[in-house]
Amino acid sequence: MPVSVIIPCRDAAAFLVQSLDSVLSQEPEPGEVIVVDDGSQDESAKLARSYGGPVRCVSQAPAGIAAARNHGIRLASGEIIGFLDADDLWPAGSLRHRLEILAADDTVGCAFGLVETFRDLASGQEGPAFLPPARPARLAGAMLVRRWVFDSVGGFDSTLRIGETMDWVARLDEQHIVTRATDHVVLRRRVHASNTVRRDTSLQTDYIRAMRAALRRRRSAGTA
């Protein structure tokens, strides 16, 4: 099953090599890795272009992570599509464990797995004292999706600055797409030092916007 991996990226040069290497060392190696450079001002695009092989890089004017993923989906030639944020990693076996799920059952549209968080030590900051244990989570980097699922569910909502995955997963559920998860860790998610991240409550309202829209859709469909 040909797999396309989409890596949306903005100014993530510090992490992109690790991220790409973690994808390229998967077995089987993905047929295609598309780095969607969302207007980076750093070396991200240059780094991605230097890889060659299955890696290609397309640049777009800054439009956000949802638009970058959608751009990648449009370009992807694989029947199976995976995503990885440019600062996260796929551990060994990530792709194989999820492919096995899809190979075993044609009706499964989307395979997930466990997500483990790790501290970004490179920044010299310790970050949060507590990291949650590995747990199932339907983050974009943890899902492997059959292409036809996007025909049914649509792409990511590019008007949301955050919560775009939550919104997409809500629509996935509403379309009754069959999903299944492996109990292996399929995504290692980098947790950045707290001082590099601001809690911006205006961003958090996008979570509410996404869920308000989901509640309305479900009410009008009579399912909530």
């Binding site: 600062d87 989570a137 983050l139 939550m166």
Partner: peptide, 21 residues
């Protein structure tokens, strides 16, 4: 599953995503 991981931690409105440069 998604809210508890609160991806907002990775987003910065001014400096880009997934992390500030």
């Amino acid at each position: 599953d998604l809210l508890q991981l609160d991806p907002v931690h990775d987003v910065d409105a001014e400096s880009g995503w997934p992390v500030p440069r």
